[in-house]
């Protein structure tokens, strides 16, 4: 049977596909945050623009209801209103909602100060003023680009290209305003505390000799943890899960030379016991400075 990728390879690849950055708060323990994806940031921006445009249009409609003839002024009025509504909207929401505009709330994003000491007013103002220059000025020029000359269109093209390329060239996906204000944008972290696998089954009926626990490292252990924690919703996937449990149990027994027979029905129990024993063993080793990242005893990367 030709397999494209082993589960272990896939897991490693998935982990590497996500980007992280670390902040060091005054407490001195580095905290890990995930870098927000381009798509989410684009979505948040779109939603914010939509909100400001709706407010702007409703103000203009309100003015139109009043006895003024504003027809000849609509475009310049719209441009002013956008500026007057937009800049304070971004600055005040990010300042008072701890780095979140309405759009960022909806997409689960947040702005962070890169120095680990919280957002400052200066950072919020700087990154949003740069947004005017970076996004909205070329944006409004793009709308009227038909009436601009070739030279201006070329400048506009180069400008937009630079603005789009900068976030892609740095690992933390900072746009120009983020670089100047020294801020990052992160996804809102969320996780629930799952029960401890090593204590959730009280009876352990398998015994392992220390020599049998020498074979694996923490990567394999954590892969096994994911397998044990996985839940199956449908009958078919439940069957598949049982199947893979039996396979994994057989593979581990073969590898560590576990003689005692394990019936298919108890594969889960066996793996559970092995997980507990292996974790205790590896954690013990770790305490004495022997860190085993995976079965090849790699020192981590």
């Amino acid at each position: 049977m030709a397999r494209l990728q082993t589960p272990a390879e896939m897991a490693r690849k998935l982990e590497n596909a996500r980007r992280w950055f670390e902040l060091v708060p005054p407490e001195g323990v580095p905290i890990r945050f995930e870098v927000a994806g381009i798509a989410a940031r684009f979505g948040a921006q779109l939603l914010d623009i939509l909100i400001t445009v709706v407010v702007m249009v409703s103000v203009i409609l309100l003015l139109a209801v009043l006895p003024f003839t504003i027809e000849p002024l609509v475009t310049s009025l719209a441009a002013i209103l956008m500026l007057v509504i937009r800049a304070p909207y971004y600055i005040l929401t990010e300042l008072f909602w701890n780095g979140q505009t309405v759009g960022k709330r909806a997409t689960g994003l947040r702005v962070l100060g890169a120095d680990g000491r919280g957002l400052t007013t200066h950072a919020v103002v700087a990154r949003n003023l740069m947004k005017e220059v970076e996004i909205f000025m070329p944006g409004t020029m793009l709308i009227v680009s038909g009436s601009l000359g070739t030279v201006w269109n070329l400048i506009l093209l180069v400008w937009i290209a630079i603005v789009l390329i900068i976030p892609l060239t740095n690992s933390k996906r900072q746009r120009l305003g983020d670089l100047i204000a020294n801020t990052y944008v992160t996804c809102r972290p969320k996780a629930v505390l799952l029960p401890d696998l090593s204590t959730s089954t009280p009876r352990i009926e398998f015994d392992f000799a220390p020599a049998q626990l020498e074979h694996y490292g923490s990567f394999e252990l954590q892969t096994l943890e994911s397998l044990l924690r996985s839940r199956s919703e449908t009958r078919r996937s439940d069957l598949r899960r049982r199947d893979s449990l039996v396979q994994v149990a057989a593979q581990i027994r073969y590898k560590i030379g576990f003689e005692e027979p394990v019936p298919d029905g108890r594969a889960h129990e066996f793996l559970h016991a092995f997980y507990t024993a292996q974790r205790a063993f590896l954690e013990q080793k770790r305490m004495f400075g022997d860190v085993r990242d995976d079965k090849h005893h790699r020192d981590g990367d």
Binding site: L221, L282, R286
Partner: peptide, 8 residues
């Protein structure tokens, strides 16, 4: 440093 429980 001490725990290998990934979910924790």
């Amino acid at each position: 440093d001490i725990s290998l429980d990934k979910s924790l």
